[in-house]
Amino acid sequence: MNSDDLMSDPAHPMHHPSDSKGASWNTQKFRDEYELYKNRLQDQRFSVAAYPDPLSPRPPHPKQYPKGTSPELERQLQELIARVKAGRDGGAA
């Protein structure tokens, strides 16, 4: 017995089956089976073109504004609220 056998790495046994074969998983059969199962897992009907660009600005959601309102009306109401708050703060000081 030599010193290499005594000091071997416990995580890698001395007579591991992959030592003599190399990478036995890298075979044509493995690659074929890998592609077969990968295709089964993927949704074949999925198309990235059916979804909008996630980084582009979006129009407001229809439920965001009740019927008869718009972003313009919301902007006007926000300005009115800001003027009322400014009037209160200015009168109280």
Rank of each mutant, 00 (worst) to 15 (best):
N2G: 15
N2P: 04
S3D: 09
S3A: 13
D5H: 07
D5F: 08
M7P: 00
P10D: 09
A11L: 12
P13Q: 13
P13N: 14
P13C: 13
H16D: 15
P17G: 01
S20F: 13
S20E: 14
S20N: 07
A23M: 10
A23S: 10
S24F: 12
W25L: 12
N26Y: 09
T27P: 03
Q28I: 11
Q28E: 14
K29R: 11
D32V: 03
E33I: 10
E33W: 08
Y34E: 11
Y34K: 14
E35H: 04
E35G: 01
L36S: 06
L36E: 07
K38F: 09
L41S: 06
L41H: 08
D43M: 00
D43T: 01
Q44A: 14
F46P: 00
A49P: 00
A50K: 07
P52S: 04
P52A: 03
P54I: 02
L55D: 13
L55Y: 05
S56H: 05
P59L: 10
P59T: 11
P60V: 09
H61F: 09
P62T: 07
P62H: 08
K63Q: 13
K63T: 11
Q64S: 12
Y65G: 04
K67W: 04
T69L: 05
S70F: 02
S70E: 03
P71L: 03
P71E: 10
P71Q: 04
L73Y: 02
E74V: 06
E79S: 07
I81K: 14
A82V: 02
K85C: 05
G87K: 13
R88F: 12
R88S: 05
D89M: 12
D89F: 08
